[in-house]
Design a protein around this nucleic acid. Sequence first.
DNA 1: AAGAAAACTGATCATGTGTTCAAATATTGT
DNA 2: ACAATATTTGAACACATGATCAGTTTTCTT
Lengths: 240, 240
Amino acid sequence: MISFLLKSFMFIRCMDKSNRAKPPKTQRHAEATGDTSARDRILKAAEQIFAEMGFEGTSLRQVAVNADVPVALVSYHFKNKLGLYRQVFKARDPNTNVQRLAGLALAETESDPERRLEMILKAVMMPMLSLRNVEGSANFGVLLTREATDPRSGERGIINEMFDPIAKATIRALKGALPGRSDPEIVWAFQMLIGTMLYIMADAGRAVHLSGGACDPEDVDGTMRMILPLLLRGIRGVGS
Amino acid sequence: MISFLLKSFMFIRCMDKSNRAKPPKTQRHAEATGDTSARDRILKAAEQIFAEMGFEGTSLRQVAVNADVPVALVSYHFKNKLGLYRQVFKARDPNTNVQRLAGLALAETESDPERRLEMILKAVMMPMLSLRNVEGSANFGVLLTREATDPRSGERGIINEMFDPIAKATIRALKGALPGRSDPEIVWAFQMLIGTMLYIMADAGRAVHLSGGACDPEDVDGTMRMILPLLLRGIRGVGS
DNA sequence: AAGAAAACTGATCATGTGTTCAAATATTGT
DNA sequence: ACAATATTTGAACACATGATCAGTTTTCTT
């Protein structure tokens, strides 16, 4: 009788496990077999929920359910809710910022100042905007916009830690491409660039709504074709 | 003995009350005497905390403490956390949007298209940016930026309900001031305008940080002097 | 002055939160 | 094969949350 109950329990437990998207394996085994490790699944789920609900609005239990792991495993891998949050950014950091720095380096080689400025803007915006089209990366732009406009972001220090290098490199590049401009002019131009980019990344249908469908941030190429001349003309200015 | 205990209790209770910043009065009495009513104090405290902590991160208890009222009073006046949130926006709506519509109407009377476009941009941006300098209003810009970039904003409907009129009026004005431009061009220009404005409003020291102190959004006039030409040149375009 | 309505208050509820812990299981290095 | 280490698991904790309610006080109306 007891064994029957045990078997029933095991069966139910087994069924429950089998409902999981992917059988849970340890990290190293997962890497070997090509499966996503539990750690990666947590990160992926966290990115999505953090983007949708914000830092405070996200519950670790919801993350755990979406990642198909028990809650305690989140704390084991990332110690804290804040630790998980920071790791989500850390995981995205290299991919986008390396692309940007490479683009900026390319721009430096362009002698025509007209085209040089355009390349700088493209180098900064493209790696971010095109995340919308990369499988499973669509949420990061929203998350980044949240963090960049959150007053409590300073305490977490993520923006300063992770985006100061690319920000300063961009400002330096702009200064090189726009000789004669004052430093404040350059920084404000940079702020306009970032503000516009963030707003587009966070857009959840407002552009479509206001334009009757003509403007859609999902269409990265179309968006760039329209927004780049606007920023370019504004930053380049009348005379130069 | 019982009366002694009662008196002690009353005394403690009285002391507790006397610690409150302002003696709580009912709404009508408060209006008559010029004091801030409990309802207004709740709204004011809510705006500040919603801005700092976000919708999910805000606790009604914290709002109640800052407003110096018992928690239950918040639910009494605003039914819900969401009800409170919506009322914070409703309370700010007329002041800013009336100013903007008035500014747009003024711009319509300007015949010089050059100056007309400048007046439109000023009409849209100034009422928002200058909130930073209005006593007790500094937080609303941050709150609005949060809401405008929150994916869950659609469910609440605040942005669509409250800013569609001014958005469409602005787009109409831009279209009038920029004949020959396609509709998508106009909408993307509008998005750049709003994105830049929101990012500046939400700025919590990043502009100062990147510019070494030269760029400070707190200085509304200085900010407008720098950011307006950038947007103007971008939107106006080369030919016109 | 008296009754009606509005404003206020403290207590309580069910629920969900982040985090911790000891025990079980799997993987690795020797 | 064995010990050491890394990962996984369920249960539990202490605490905060939004919301509700009955009862009191204040204000308004007549």
